[in-house]
Write a protein that binds this DNA or RNA. Structure first.
Lengths: 106, 106
DNA sequence: TTTGTCTATATTGTAATGCAAGGTAGTGAC
DNA sequence: GTCACTACCTTGCATTACAATATAGACAAA
């Protein structure tokens, strides 16, 4: 069986930055957005470590904010460095996707 | 700096199976095919371990054949199991690519 | 009041993967 | 006989997605 999750490597990171780039968001909501977009199997166990990694790398900045429904939410914003990283990702994605399509077609 | 190689995870494997599925081929030629398709940075150090892995998993079968230019070539062929795995990969790729595009657009 | 559900974040450990680095060896041209 | 090209292989490392597990607040229903 082919493990679909292998295809998430590298792409998830970029997608998360893109989502946060639109407007600051928090983990629980980001998981929902990813699932809706088609990453149906993404769980919190995947996302939270990833967010922490991106924060430590300086791609994201974070601030807690009270929630009306439960525990405080940790809102992430894209830093300038993160925006640049995102641009690089988008470029790389297009290049790689084109290469894969070139091979798969026919 | 975004590491483009992260996007290769999972995709390379499928692309290799696809190339071999068209007609049996050997490592050195497969590297050339990948480079031409757009995986410009792929090296033998990446490919050979991957081919061995796929062979051990039963996705590929191999046979040595003399070369007119140098050492014997190890020709790989797609097994039945490999063909099924490839089909699963193609399906997964389309799903994932659609999800990424959905997020990146706009 | 306690049970369950939804919201929300975090940590630990593991397996898979790409890749750098290094090594071996055949062929042929100069 | 040295160089360049062809052709294969192995060891070890860093990154990554993910499962599993833990913690905890809010709130409704039983």
């Amino acid at each position: 069986m082919f493990e679909r999750s292998q295809l998430n490597k590298g792409t998830l990171e970029g997608c998360i930055l893109k989502i946060i780039g639109r407007e600051p968001s928090y983990g629980y909501a980001i998981v929902a957005a990813l699932r809706e977009a088609g990453f149906t199997d993404v769980t919190e166990g995947t996302l939270y470590p990833l967010l922490l990694r991106l924060e430590r790398k300086g791609m994201l900045s974070a601030a807690y904010q009270a929630s009306p429904n439960g525990p405080s939410r940790k809102y992430y914003s894209l830093t300038e460095q993160g925006a640049q990283y995102l641009a690089e990702f988008e470029q790389a994605w297009q290049t790689t996707a084109a290469a894969v399509e070139a091979i798969l077609q026919d």
